[in-house]
């Protein structure tokens, strides 16, 4: 358990670096909205979801629009339903308490790293938690430093800090590429994402693109499907 926690933390070090940078940007924004460090830490601990926290801080006002914030967070985080579902093989054989305890510290970063690692070897759920703890600590550190440092980084976009998120997720997506059977699903996902980003508010494009890609893969012809089902079978045996 301990070595798997450490493995997970080590594998997430690059993600942690970008989470710190990204977190410091959120902290700077939060300082302008008048959040205290304790408000920030409560949010980091209870919500622990980067994109959602950015929107929460963006919507922050003297008289808090509580319901609107909750709905916005629900929409942005809809993808966690899919992320949670994709982690089911990792938690196979574990009880409800174990699942309830470990699922909270799942972010895009340690999820993607764990899925990628799972394709190479048998991974235990502690690997996911190790990454989650590291991300929680570094993300919180980044946000609080940004908050306290406040005006020190006046123009984060000048240093392309706002692009850190896009860059790190691009790198992660490349790591999840499954070969040519992904060409069509990714084309559909990317096109739907652009359309939804253009015409729909908020973060719907993530969920719509992802579901479109998933459905494209499901509609592929059955001959390939049989072959891939067999490959899938060995994956299951490997887990």
């Amino acid at each position: 358990m301990r070595s798997e926690l450490l493995n997970g933390a080590k594998a997430n070090i690059p993600m942690a670096a970008s989470a710190t940078a990204y977190g410091s940007v959120l902290g700077v924004l939060a300082s302008q909205k008048g959040l205290t460090w304790l408000d920030m830490m409560l949010m980091n601990t209870a919500v622990f979801a980067g994109a959602a926290q950015f929107v929460m801080v963006d919507m922050w006002a003297g008289d808090l629009p509580v319901i609107e914030i909750a709905l916005a967070v629900l929409v942005i985080n809809l993808r966690y339903l899919l992320i949670g579902a994709s982690l089911e093989p990792l938690f196979k054989g574990h009880g409800l308490i174990h699942k309830m305890g470990l699922i909270h510290l799942v972010a895009d970063e340690n999820w993607a790293v764990t899925i990628a690692e799972q394709r190479k070897r048998k991974v235990r759920s502690w690997f996911l938690l190790g990454g989650g703890i590291l991300l929680y600590v570094t993300w919180s550190f980044g946000t609080v430093v940004g908050l306290v440092g406040g005006g020190l980084i006046t123009h984060p976009e000048k240093y392309a800090l706002d692009f850190a998120f896009t860059a790190v997720f691009t790198a992660l997506a490349v790591g999840l590429w499954q070969g040519k059977r992904d060409i069509l699903p990714w084309l559909v996902a990317g096109s739907l994402s652009l359309l939804a980003h253009q015409f729909l508010p908020g973060k719907w494009y993530i969920v719509i693109g992802g579901l479109g890609g998933m459905m494209t893969a499901m509609l592929g012809n059955t001959e390939d499907g049989d072959k891939e089902a067999l490959e899938g079978g060995t994956d299951v045996a490997g887990c």
Binding site: A173, V188, G213, G232
Partner: peptide, 14 residues
């Protein structure tokens, strides 16, 4: 199997 990659790709494209 296709979902994680497609979801991340959708996240970065815009």
């Amino acid at each position: 199997d296709a979902l994680p990659g497609a979801l991340l790709f959708s996240l970065v494209v815009p």
